[in-house]
Design a protein around this nucleic acid. Structure first.
Length: 205
DNA sequence: CCCTGATTCGC
DNA sequence: GCGAATCAGG
C-alpha cells in the first residue's frame, strides 16, 4: 500500500480527530500503526493541534487587573477532548430521611430532588432479576466490584463493555475486565448477556 | 499484558 | 519516503 492522496487525507482527518495511530492503521488497512505514526511525523503533524491555537504557553505572569474576586471562578476546561461531561458530584446514595409530617405546616419541599435528568436515556441492560441463574447474578455482582471502571474511550476489543451504573450520573462506567475472545463482555457478563433462547431448561420451576 | 506515540535507521 | 524495530511511557 502506498500513501495516496486519499489515504493521506483520511490519515490527516482521523489524526486530527484524535484517533489513535492503530485505529487509523486499521481503518486504512495495509499499514501498521508504525507506518501511520511514521507518516504522521513526516507530514509534520505529530503535534495534534490542527487548530491555530494560542501560539505560546503564555503563562501571563504579570497579574493584570483582576475582576470580581468574589465569584468562585469557573474552572477552565481542558479543551482537549470534547467528550467529557464533567459530572457534578451528586450524592446518589440518599438516606431514607423519614418525615413524620407535622400536619400543621403545609411544608415546602426542601427535599434534594433528584438531579432531574433531561434526556432520560435507556438504562443499561442491568439484569433485572430476570430469567438469569442465581449463580450468574451472584457472579456478576462479585465481578462488578472488581470492574476496571473504564470510560467509554478506554474500551477496546478486549475489554468488557458491560455498562455499570446510571449513565445520567457520574456513577457510571464500563466493566472493563478482560472480555471473552470474540465477545464484547467478560466471562461473567457474557453469562447474563447471552441467554440461550430457552435459558433454563424449564427446570420444572 | 494491554495500549499509546516517538524515534531511529536500513531500505 | 517508508515503516519495522525499538524505545518510553500509561
Amino acid at each position: 500500500m502506498s500513501w495516496t492522496d486519499d489515504r493521506v487525507e483520511t490519515l490527516k482527518r482521523m489524526w486530527s480527530e484524535g484517533q489513535s495511530a492503530s485505529a487509523i492503521a486499521k481503518e486504512l488497512g495495509g499499514v501498521t500503526r508504525n507506518a501511520v505514526i511514521g507518516k504522521v511525523h513526516r507530514l509534520g503533524l505529530s503535534n495534534r493541534t490542527e487548530e491555530p491555537e494560542a501560539p505560546a504557553p503564555a503563562p501571563a505572569p504579570e497579574p493584570v487587573a483582576r475582576e470580581k474576586p468574589a465569584a468562585p471562578r469557573a474552572v477552565p476546561q481542558p479543551a482537549t477532548v470534547p467528550l467529557r461531561p464533567e459530572p457534578a458530584p451528586e450524592p446518589v446514595a440518599v438516606q431514607p430521611e423519614p418525615e413524620p409530617e407535622p400536619s400543621t405546616q403545609p411544608a415546602f419541599v426542601p427535599v434534594p430532588r433528584r438531579p432531574i435528568v433531561p434526556a432520560g436515556q435507556p438504562l443499561p441492560p442491568q439484569p433485572s432479576a430476570n430469567e438469569i441463574s442465581p449463580e450468574a447474578l451472584a457472579s456478576v455482582r462479585e465481578v462488578e466490584k472488581r470492574a476496571k471502571k473504564l470510560t467509554l474511550m478506554e474500551l477496546t476489543e478486549r475489554t468488557c463493555k458491560w455498562p455499570i451504573g446510571d449513565p445520567a450520573t457520574d456513577k457510571f462506567w464500563f466493566c472493563g475486565l478482560p472480555s471473552v475472545a470474540g465477545k464484547p463482555y467478560c466471562e461473567a457478563h457474557v453469562g447474563v448477556a447471552f441467554q440461550p433462547m430457552s435459558s433454563r431448561r424449564d427446570r420444572r420451576r
